[in-house]
Design a protein around this nucleic acid. Structure first.
Lengths: 361, 361
DNA sequence: TAAATTTGCGCAATCGTTCCCGACAACGTT
DNA sequence: AACGTTGTCGGGAACGATTGCGCAAATTTA
C-alpha cells in the first residue's frame, strides 16, 4: 500500500528526470575550475584574465598560462545574463533563397562578425503572422538589435513599433516602415523603376504593364512612382488594368500566374512588363515560358533582380540590380552604431543607394 | 595632491562606466516583478507558471492571469544558463548566396522553428580558417548542435572531431567528413555525376573534361567517381589533363578562369565539360561567355546546380539538381533527434538522396 | 617608529530561472 | 491524543561570470 503510494508519488519525478536530461556531456571549463586547480578564488581568476591592475603580475601569469593551456573560453550565456546583452543581432527577411537577400546577408555577416556579433536569420516567407512570431522570438531571445525587411503581407507594424518604443535598436533595409523613426537604408527604387521603364519605352514599347508586390510595401509604392513618372514623360496615361499586385510577392506561383493571365487576356494586351521584384521577375518569366509567350518578341520584360545567373544569357530580361551586399553592410554598421551608442539617438539617417540597370535585350 | 591622485584613481572607473553603459532601456518583466506585485515568492510564481501540482488552483489562476496581463516571457538566457542548452543550432555552409545552400537553409529553418530551435548561420566562404573560427564561435556560444557542410579548403577536421568527441551533436550534409562518426546526409553524387556524364556521351561528346572543387571534399571524390564510371562504360580512358580542381570551389573567379583557359589551350581541346558544383557551373558559363566560346556548339556544359533561374532558358546547360530543401529538413531532424536523445547514440545513419537530371540542351 | 596608504586577494551579491528542502497548517488515522 | 499525510508555499542554492567592498599584509610616508 505504502509502496504503491510512493511509486505513484515519484512517478512524475522519474518522468521529469528523463525529460530534462538528454544525453549531453559537452561541458566546457569554467572560472571555478581554474580557481580550484590553482587554489585561488574565482574573483581573482576573473580579474587576472581581464588584466586588472589589482592582481600581481605573477598571479596573472600563472592564471593566463593555465587558462591558455586548458583553452578556457568565458561562457557567453553567463555574460549575456550579467551584461544584459547578447552580442547578437536578429535579421528578418522574406527568404534567404531570394538573390537580393542572400547577397544582403553576405554583407550583414561580413560586418557583424568583424565587430563580434552573431547573426540570427529568420524568414517570413512573406507572411505577416510569421513575421510577428519571428520578431517576438528574436526579441525574447534577447538580440541586441534588429535588421528588418518587412514581409509583403505586413501593413500593420505595431509589433515592431512596440519594441522600438521600448528601446530595442532596429534598422530597416529595402522594405522600410514609414511610421517608425529609425535608420533606414534602401535602393533608389523610384529611379531604378524609372530607368527600367524608360528603357522599355526607348526600345519602342508603349503598352507597358507593371507586375508588383503588395501595395503597402514601401518598395512597391516607390517603384510604382518611378514607373508612372516614366510613362508620364512619354505622355502615356496610366492604365489601372495594367497594374497587377501580388499580395504575397509571388511566394505562390499561382499568384503570378493569375496576374499574367489576366494581363494577357486583356483586349489591349501589353507589349512589355516592368516587374518590381526578384522573385516576381523569375516567376514572371517562368509563367511566360509556360504560356509559350515569346520574350521579348511578343512581350518584353524588365525588372528588379539580383540574380547573377541572368548575366549568362544575352537574354530577354533587362534588370535593375540593387547593391545588396553594400546595403547589408551599411545597415549593419548603422545598427551597431545604434546598439553601442552611449546616449539615446534622436537623429536618424535615411540612406538611399543607386541601382544599376543591366541591359540585356 | 590628494585630489589629483583621487582623480587619477577614479579615471578608469569613469571610463569603464561610460564604456559598459550603452543606452539601452529594453527591460522585460521578470519572475521577481510578478512575485513582488502579487506578494508571493519567485519559487511559487515559477511553479504556478509551470503548472506544478503543488500550487493551489487559485494561486495558479492569479499568477497566470497577471503574467498574461503583463505579457510575461521567461528570459531564455537565464534558462540557457540553468538548463545548459540554448535551443539553438549552428549551421556552417560555404555561402548563403549559393543556390544549393540557400534552399537547404530553407529546409533547415522549416524544421528547426517547428521544434522551437533557433538557427545561427555562418559562412566559410570556402576558407579553412574561417571554418575553424566559426565553429569555435558557435561552440563557445553554446549551440546545442551543429549542421556542417565542410569548406573546400578543409582537409583536416580535427577542430570538429574534438567537439564531437566532447559530445557536441553534429550532422553533416552535402560535404561530409569521413573520419567523424555521426549522421550524414548527402545526394547520390556518384549517380548524379554518372547520369550527367552519360548524357553528354549520349549526345555524341567524347572529349569530356571535368571541372571540380578541391580534391579532399567528399562530393568532389564521389562526383569524380561517377564521371569516371561513365567514361569507363563508353571505353574512354581517363585523361588527367581533362580534370581541373579549383581549391576554393570557384570562390575566386580567376581560379575558374585559369582552369578553363588551361583546358582550352590543350592540344586536344575538350568538347564538353562536366562541372561538379553550383558556383563552378555559373562561373564556368561566365568564363566561356567571356572567352566567346559557343555553348553548346563548341563545348557542351553539364553540371551540378540548384539555380531555378536556369530553368528559364532552353539553354546550353543541363544540370544535376540536388534535393536541397529536403536534405536540409532531414539533416535538421536527425540533429534534433541526436540533441534530444536521452542516451548516447552509437548507431549512425548515412542517408543518400537521389539527384535529378534536368536536360536542357 | 607610528600612521597612512597601497597591494593583493577573497566574500558575497547580482543577472533570471529552476528546484531541492524545509516549514507549517489542515487534515485523516489509529 | 498523538502521529503520519497531505497541500501550499517560501528560503536558498545553484548555473558562470563580474565587481563593489572588506581585510590583511606589505609598503610608503610623516
Amino acid at each position: 500500500m505504502l509502496l504503491i503510494r510512493m511509486i505513484i508519488l515519484i512517478l512524475p519525478y522519474i518522468d521529469q528526470y528523463l525529460n530534462s536530461s538528454p544525453f549531453f556531456m559537452f561541458e566546457p571549463t569554467t572560472l571555478k575550475d581554474i580557481a580550484k586547480a590553482l587554489g585561488l578564488s574565482t574573483s581573482t581568476v576573473s580579474r587576472a584574465l581581464r588584466d586588472t591592475h589589482e592582481i600581481s603580475v605573477e598571479t596573472k601569469k600563472i592564471v593566463l598560462e593555465y587558462a591558455e593551456k586548458i583553452n578556457y573560453r568565458p561562457n557567453p550565456i553567463a555574460l549575456s545574463l550579467k551584461e544584459r546583452r547578447t552580442k547578437s543581432i536578429g535579421v528578418l527577411v522574406s527568404e534567404v533563397a531570394n538573390h537580393y537577400f542572400s547577397q544582403a546577408i553576405g554583407g550583414i555577416e561580413s560586418i557583424a562578425y568583424d565587430r563580434g556579433y552573431h547573426v540570427i536569420i529568420t524568414q517570413t516567407h512573406e507572411s505577416y503572422d510569421r513575421e510577428k512570431i519571428n520578431i517576438q522570438h528574436l526579441a525574447s531571445r534577447g538580440v541586441d538589435g534588429l535588421l528588418v525587411s518587412l514581409s509583403a503581407e505586413t501593413s500593420d507594424t505595431s509589433h515592431l513599433k512596440l519594441l522600438h518604443d521600448r528601446g530595442l535598436p532596429m534598422v530597416f533595409f529595402d522594405r522600410v516602415a514609414n511610421d517608425i523613426e529609425t535608420h533606414k537604408i534602401s535602393a533608389n527604387n523610384e529611379k531604378g523603376a524609372y530607368d527600367a521603364t524608360i528603357q522599355l519605352l526607348e526600345s519602342g514599347r508603349r503598352k507597358i504593364a507593371h507586375l508588383t508586390s503588395s501595395n503597402h510595401l514601401s518598395i512597391s509604392i516607390e517603384r510604382l512612382a518611378g514607373y508612372t513618372a516614366a510613362l508620364n514623360e512619354y505622355g502615356i496615361p496610366l492604365q489601372e488594368e495594367y497594374i497587377k499586385h501580388c499580395p504575397h510577392g509571388g511566394m505562390f506561383q499561382e499568384e503570378t500566374e493569375h496576374a499574367i493571365s489576366e494581363l494577357m487576356s486583356l483586349e489591349d494586351k501589353p507589349d512589355a512588363i516592368f516587374v518590381a521584384g526578384d522573385r516576381l521577375s523569375i516567376g514572371c518569366l517562368t509563367v511566360l515560358k509556360k504560356f509559350n509567350i515569346a520574350v521579348p518578341e511578343e512581350i518584353a520584360v524588365s525588372g528588379f533582380s539580383n540574380s547573377d545567373v541572368l548575366d549568362l544569357f544575352k537574354s530577354s530580361l533587362s534588370s535593375v540590380r540593387q547593391p545588396a551586399y553594400e546595403m547589408g553592410r551599411m545597415a549593419t554598421e548603422m545598427l551597431i552604431k545604434l546598439i553601442e551608442s552611449k546616449y539615446p539617438v534622436t537623429e536618424f539617417e535615411n540612406r538611399v543607394l543607386d541601382t544599376e540597370l543591366v541591359i540585356r535585350s
